[in-house]
Simulated assay, not measured.
Amino acid sequence: MLTLIRNVEVFAPEPMGRQDLLLANGQIEAMAPQIRLTGSVPLETVEGNGLIACPGFIDSLVHITGGGGEGGFHTRTPAMALTEATLAGVSTVVGALGTDAISRTLPDLIAKCYALRQLGLGCFFYTGGYQVPVRTLLADVSEDVMLLEPCLGVGEVAIADHRSSHPSPQELIRLASQARTGGLLSGKAGVVSIHLGDDPTGLEWLRQSVAQSNLPLSQFYPTHVNRTEAVFQSAIEFGLADGWLDITASTTPELLAQGEVAAAEALRRLLSAGVSPSRVTLSSDGNASLPSFDADGRYQGLQVGRVASLHQAVVAAHELGVPLEQVLACVSRNPATVLGLADRGRLAPGLRADLLLLERDSLAVQALWCGGKAMVQQGRALVTEPF
């Protein structure tokens, strides 16, 4: 079956004007102003009038097996359902463990990753978790990255947070070196996903790790850079030094009241400050716990991160005046670059057919293909989990 999408406004994520797109064999076979086909090959035609075509979103941090537990066993958050991603326009997720890497395990994370892949969603994972020394499935981080195909790096390693193990720069250097070696040997990025707490010194620790080693700054991929105003100001400096920055979309009224910068506003301010649009990503932190603590670190309550927050942040950022191509790059081309996923994140012939159709005015999700497989049509899920 071939799929021909006609007369759609393409953002690849750069604007390409009106185009036709032909999908076949799981990839984009052709993109041109007008594609004509002859013969009797089975063909599904989708009319794209009034729609935008862009790459499916890449969500670089999702707790696909659930997270949380900061308030006790009953506060463990649920695992991600397939449609939580697809109905939000997400075609690829990267799973991670968080605070709880005891009852949440790497074998369970990997099994969930493969389950989502079998259903059609693109899925990868990070080995390890918050704590250092990290737990791995094989001997160390290098082996996990090199020998486990879906493993892209290590993370999310927590720093500057009362829930972290407070790793030293030397421990971060060792982790990053192992991830880098495993990446080099397997053709992967080997990134170190860094969870930032609310202490603004966290990014300085990453700079120290680079200064004390031969590692490039790009080996570290810090997330939650909009956690507090102080952390955000430090992130601006980090971004101006050409470091990667990941903005978290999931939030709560309580976190915003405590000083978190809303994702859309954070993106607008980073770009206004001169940070390169190519160095910023957005992720949802979906299915993570969003706990609240008092001044003495006592647990106050918890809400759950949602993958849908990623799409909501895209819409909000565009409403704030961020050009659509720059917003879309933060959830497609940019995360594909930092994660080393060369086959997705852009729309071009020969690339994986991860394709999202959005309504032009509202940016509502209308249709989604993952690897050429139709997952959503007319805003409704075509593929769901069996249970």
Rank of each mutant, 00 (worst) to 15 (best):
V46R: 07
Q178D: 09
G239L: 14
T45F: 04
T136I: 01
G48S: 08
G48K: 06
D285T: 00
V141P: 15
L358P: 10
E204S: 06
E237T: 13
L245C: 11
A53F: 01
T83W: 02
T3E: 12
A230D: 05
W244H: 07
I52P: 15
K188G: 11
A111M: 14
A139E: 11
L256F: 04
F11L: 03
E265C: 09
V280G: 02
P335A: 12
L147P: 08
Q233I: 08
L351D: 08
L302R: 04
C113L: 09
L138F: 12
S362L: 08
G305S: 10
I58L: 15
A24H: 08
F125E: 05
H166L: 08
Q170D: 13
A12M: 09
V141Y: 01
E237M: 05
N7M: 00
L267G: 15
P386Y: 06
V304C: 10
G72R: 05
L82P: 05
S177Y: 00
S209W: 07
Q377N: 00
S218I: 03
G153Y: 01
T251H: 01
L382R: 10
A111P: 00
S250T: 09
V304T: 13
L137V: 10
S276E: 14
Q326E: 09
V314T: 08
R279Y: 15
G129M: 01
P42I: 14
R360Y: 06
L347T: 03
P13Q: 15
G187W: 15
V331S: 15
E237D: 11
L184T: 07
I35V: 04
L358V: 02
T248D: 01
D198Y: 08
W205S: 07
L51Q: 09
S193K: 11
I52R: 03
D246F: 11
E14T: 05
P78C: 11
S213R: 12
G129T: 06
P13V: 13
A235C: 01
G182Q: 03
V134M: 00
V275P: 00
L368S: 04
R163F: 00
L245H: 07
G50P: 15
P277D: 10
D242W: 13
E254P: 12
L355Q: 15
L184E: 02
V365D: 12
I52F: 04
A316S: 12
